[in-house]
Amino acid sequence: MEFEPTIVSFLCNWCSYTGADLAGTSRMKYAHNVRVIRVMCSGRVEPTFVFKAFREGADGVLICGCHPGDCHYHEGNYKCLRRYHLIKKYLDQMGIEQDRLRLAWISASEGKQFAELADEMTETIKSLGPCKVKNVMETLT
């Protein structure tokens, strides 16, 4: 059976969630592997959210926020960007491939872009194979 990855995505309420919604209401077809969690702002995504997702068995994590300058809370997406680079470094140290985490800007009218992003991300994760962190953690504890 082909490997079907699980991708946890954190979408900001104002732009990206509406964008994903638009992809749905426009009846665009995209990979079903993306599981959406709505957050009020991409700045709300704490590093622990990402780590927990991997620990619980996610194969990839996608964070989407408003385009730079568009944030409903002025600077939430910039904070997210800073955190994102830190998390990436840390993931590497934990033995998780950096490509498993991705940050993208999706506005409310970019349903098509969201659908393309979901497909692209699924392809990347498929080529990387399942994330081993969950198994490792279970063996250790």
Binding site: T18, C66, S107, S109
Partner: peptide
Amino acid sequence: PTLDCAACILTP
């Protein structure tokens, strides 16, 4: 002048 996406404000 903020270049916010109109749908992001209106659709919610």
